[in-house]
Simulated scan of single mutants.
Amino acid sequence: MLTEDQIARYSRHIILKEVGGKGQKKLFDGKVMIIGAGGLGSPIALYLAAAGVGTIGIADADVVDLSNLQRQVIHQTKDVGIAKVLSAKEKMQAINPELTVNTYEEWISAANITDIIKDYDFVIDGTDNFAAKFLINDACVLAGKPYSHGGILQFDGQTITIEPGKSACYRCIFPTPPPKDAIPTCSTAGVIGVLPGVIGTIQATEAIKFLLGKGELLTGRLLTYSALRMRFREVPIKKNGKCPICGDNPTITQVVDELDALNVCDLEK
């Protein structure tokens, strides 16, 4: 039973026939894990909090830096030097005090990721390096956890949703990581500040749709976005029978750190 305050807070959800009171209850009961409290994680965390997702986990070992504030909208100038997960939690609970926000002030690695994601319904990748992205993919596929991949660089972004056992995974597209430092990160190549807002909001939408059981998820389709050209493009992606983790004869049966441990989870800075 919704309280009067909850009915007022979520009234624009409740009047949607796809949501209603029952759908809002599903959001209350939902658990979403966000890995990365930076550019992508910021809009994801804010919108999931506002939507009333009842339990949200957020993992990041970094602290807020002045250079983050150009795009990481969950953090403020007063937060410089504070752990990103604590800064994010403060803003999320300021929007919605009813939330449970679980913070993980640590880099994800093969040693901890399975335990971190195990209690969540949906996982969101808000990281900015290939080692972390492959680690998240592998952990979610092996655990059967649906998740949203997102990536941003300069003026371009991409996102896809993976449902293990049903859709193509990240390794179906990219079987192995590129050589270390072959592709620059946002900290070395730059990123337009609004870009993570576009991609992160789409990722948050996917999580909400999944919890509601409504709409068509972004599975089997890699959505790319060019801010300079203001164009979206969908690239059909099929399950790859030769995929090393979800193919016919998988060779990956446990999570491992692809690159040296110091760089495994250098989240979006």
Rank of each mutant, 00 (worst) to 15 (best):
A143G: 04
Y104Q: 01
G126S: 05
F134N: 01
P236M: 13
T114Y: 00
T3Y: 06
G41M: 07
L217K: 08
M33G: 09
K89I: 08
G151Q: 04
V256M: 12
T55K: 14
G21K: 09
Y147T: 01
G157W: 00
A61I: 02
P43E: 07
N249R: 14
D115A: 12
C186G: 05
I162Y: 01
N68I: 08
G36Y: 10
I35H: 01
P184M: 10
A51L: 00
A168T: 02
Q6M: 10
K17M: 03
N129P: 11
A131I: 06
T55L: 07
G54A: 10
H13C: 01
I113A: 00
C243G: 10
I82K: 15
V235C: 03
G157H: 05
P178M: 14
Y170T: 10
R233E: 14
A132L: 02
F174T: 14
I113R: 00
Q6T: 05
K84L: 11
T201A: 14
H13V: 02
H75M: 04
M33Y: 04
P196C: 08
A143E: 09
L259R: 02
P236V: 11
K25A: 12
F210W: 07
D257W: 03
H13R: 01
A227G: 06
T253N: 15
I15C: 11
G165F: 06
F232H: 12
K239W: 01
T176V: 12
T3F: 02
T77H: 09
A59M: 07
Y47K: 04
A132Q: 01
T161Q: 10
G30F: 09
T114G: 15
M92I: 11
A111F: 06
L259E: 06
G144D: 03
L142I: 02
